[in-house]
C-alpha cells in the first residue's frame, strides 16, 4: 500500500508536482499515466526518499520510506534501468543488492532465472546490455528481496511486445498474491494492458483517477446508424450529451440507455458498443493536451 497525500515539489517558481494525492492499493496494479515531464518520475523519487518534497508526504506500508529498516525487503524499486555502473556485470549488480539486503546467495540465480537472463548474459558487463536487458535486470533487482510493494518507473520502456506481455503476467501474479504495484508510463496502451487502477497526471496535477473500468465507462458509448445526425438528434432530445465523429455517434451514457433511446425514437442501430480503448486514449490526450504543450515549452526553454 502506498499513500500519497497532498504531495508538492517546487523547483523555484516551477511546480513539478502539485498537491498530488492518491493511493495504490494492495492486490492491485496501479498505472501512473502522464506525458513526459508531467511529474511522474519526481513523484516516484519523492516516494523512495531520493527527493525531498516541498510539502505533503508519502507513506509506503504505513511509514515514510526512509523509516523502513531494510527497504529492499519490503519495497522493490526500479527508477531508471540505465542508472547502473556500466562496468559491472548483471550478476554483480544483483549480488551487491542481495548482500545489502542480507539475502542468501542462491537468490541471485533465482532472480536471473525469473527474468530470463541467461548465465552468459549475466556475466556480461552492463554496458553491453540492450535497454530491454537492463529493464529485466532492473526488475530482477526490484523483485530480489521478495518485496510487498513494487515501484517501477517506465518499466516497459525498451521491452518488445513479448517482453511487455511477460511483464504484465509477472505484475499480475505479484498483485494476485496481495502485492501492491505502482508503475508509470507515458504510453496509454501499456497502462491499459497492465493496470487495474489508473491515475492520470498532467502538469504536476492529478487529472483523473479510478479503476480502469470506471475510466472506460466514463468515456461512454459509441453508436452508429444509417443517418448519424438523426441518431444524435434523438439522443440529445433525451438529454444525452453526444458528439458525432467519423459517422459514429459518441454518447455520454451507458449502452442500455443509448439502445433504449434509439429504439424509442425508432432509429435502427447498425452498431452499439462501449467507446473503449480509443475513448480512453481520447480522454488521455484531451486531459494532457494542455500540459503536454506546457511541458514542451518548458523543455525547449530549458534547452535554450
Amino acid at each position: 500500500m502506498i499513500t500519497i497525500e497532498s504531495l508538492t515539489k517546487k523547483y523555484g517558481a516551477f511546480t513539478a508536482v502539485d498537491h498530488v494525492t492518491f493511493t495504490a492499493q494492495p492486490g492491485r496494479v496501479t498505472g501512473f499515466l502522464g506525458p513526459n515531464g508531467a511529474g511522474k518520475s519526481t513523484t516516484m523519487r519523492v516516494m523512495v526518499g531520493l527527493t525531498e518534497p516541498t510539502s505533503g508526504h508519502v507513506h509506503v506500508l504505513g511509514r515514510p520510506f526512509a523509516a523502513l529498516p531494510n527497504p529492499g525487503r519490503e519495497v522493490g524499486v526500479l527508477l531508471d534501468a540505465s542508472a547502473q555502473h556500466a562496468g559491472r556485470t548483471g550478476r554483480e549488480i544483483l549480488t551487491i543488492a542481495a548482500r545489502t539486503m542480507g539475502l542468501p546467495k542462491g537468490r541471485v540465480d533465482d532472480m536471473l532465472d525469473r527474468v530470463s537472463l541467461t548465465e552468459e548474459e549475466s556475466s556480461r558487463r552492463v554496458r553491453n546490455y540492450s535497454l530491454g536487458m537492463r529493464q529485466r535486470l532492473g526488475i530482477a533487482t526490484a523483485l530480489l528481496g521478495d518485496p510487498e510493494v513494487l515501484i517501477l518507473d517506465e518499466p516497459a520502456n525498451g521491452l518488445d511486445p513479448a517482453g511487455i506481455r511477460w511483464m504484465r503476467d509477472l505484475l499480475r501474479e505479484f498483485g494476485d498474491q496481495g502485492g501492491t504495484v505502482l508503475l508509470s508510463s507515458h504510453l496509454l496502451h501499456e497502462i491499459e494492458v497492465i493496470a487495474d487502477d489508473i491515475v492520470v497526471i498532467g502538469n504536476g496535477r492529478i487529472v483523473a483517477g479510478g479503476t480502469k473500468e470506471e475510466l472506460l465507462a466514463s468515456t461512454g458509448t459509441l453508436a452508429r446508424a444509417a443517418d448519424p445526425a438523426v441518431l444524435a438528434h434523438a439522443l440529445e432530445a433525451a438529454g444525452i450529451v453526444t458528439s458525432v465523429a467519423d459517422g459514429a455517434v459518441f454518447a455520454d451514457a451507458d449502452l442500455t440507455t443509448v439502445g433504449r433511446t434509439a429504439f424509442a425514437a425508432g432509429v435502427p442501430l447498425t452498431e452499439l458498443r462501449t467507446a473503449d480503448g480509443a475513448g480512453l486514449e481520447e480522454m488521455f490526450l484531451e486531459l494532457t493536451a494542455e500540459s503536454q504543450r506546457d511541458s514542451l515549452d518548458y523543455t525547449e526553454g530549458a534547452v535554450a
Binding site: 492486490g27 525487503r73 510487498e148 503476467d169 499480475r172 498474491q177 496481495g178
Partner: peptide
C-alpha cells in the same frame, strides 16, 4: 486478465514480519 485480476484483492495477504 486484468478484469479477472480485479477480484483478487482478497487474495492471500502474506503474513510478513518487519525485517
Amino acid at each position: 486478465p486484468s478484469t479477472t485480476g480485479g477480484s483478487a484483492v482478497s487474495a492471500r495477504p502474506r503474513e510478513r514480519s518487519v525485517p
